[in-house]
Amino acid sequence: MSFPAGRAANLLLAAAGLALLVVAPFTGLYPVFLMKLLCFALFACAFNLMLGYVGLLSFGHAAFFGMAAYYTGHVVKEWGFDPLLGILTGAVGAALMGLVFGAIAIRQRGIYFAMITLALAQMVYFFCLQVPFTHGEDGIQGIPRGRLFGLIDLRDSLNMYFFVAAIFVVGFAMIQRTVHSPFGQALKGIRENEARMISLGYPVARIKVMAFTISAGLAGLAGATKSIVFQTATLTDVHWHMSGEVVLMTLIGGMGTILGPVVGAGVIVTLQNYLATIGSWVTVVMGVIFVVCVLTFRRGIVGEILARLGWR
């Protein structure tokens, strides 16, 4: 789903995006808000890799997001890992979990895949509720932000912001690289016509598991980063509500578009920020947005813009 206007437009867009990332903290926007937004944007992009490019809806991505947050929190707080190393540990842990879950879940397609991933994620939730290292209902609190490479103090919001922005750019670039590689083309082939890909000799099952692993790893990267930003890892991050939220972000922004999940994450995180005062009505608002999007706005914001411009 690249822009047909070609490389120049892509480069221009990338430059504009990078400029926006650099300027954003100086526009008076609260850095923690921006960091939260970037974490969720990366999470949604990782999720969209499965839904948008392989056509498989995972309803259990919170398991990777939340588990990675726990791994990172644990190794940074208890074992004194460097923040970067801690985040990488979380992401790798999530990817390994994605490998196992993917191998189980790809045995079914479509709607079953969604139910299986949801059930596996629920298993992770119950696991986290019981094992000691997650500290149950309390979660892991007071994870130190520490010093990056022992030099840069991440307790400073601006330093932390640029660290998060760098992680986002790396994660986003990895997704772009995946989508536009021959591997990405094979993924799209599977989405469009799986039977044909099998008869062409592609190892479809292995490709799907690999895509799921990458998606889980990047979702983990997002969750791990979030745990350093907010210095906590809690059950909220592994709950199925979180899986639903990332589905909603992708849906509202535009499934299968490059920028859709980023825009969707922006909309939802902003909304949650403003709606924080109405308490538990937020759930109802999310539900209404879900229903309205599915009934009338299935292309999502970015998908709608692209369609209006005649680019799809």
Binding site: I111, L251, V282, V284, G287, I289, F290, V294, R298
Partner: peptide, 24 residues
């Protein structure tokens, strides 16, 4: 007429609305 996933997503939203309302 659409992909089955939309039915799942729609009813998911519905569940959030019903449960959220009663929780309130």
């Amino acid at each position: 007429e659409l992909d089955h996933l939309y039915g799942l997503l729609f009813t998911f939203g519905l569940a959030l609305i019903i449960e959220g309302t009663f929780i309130n």
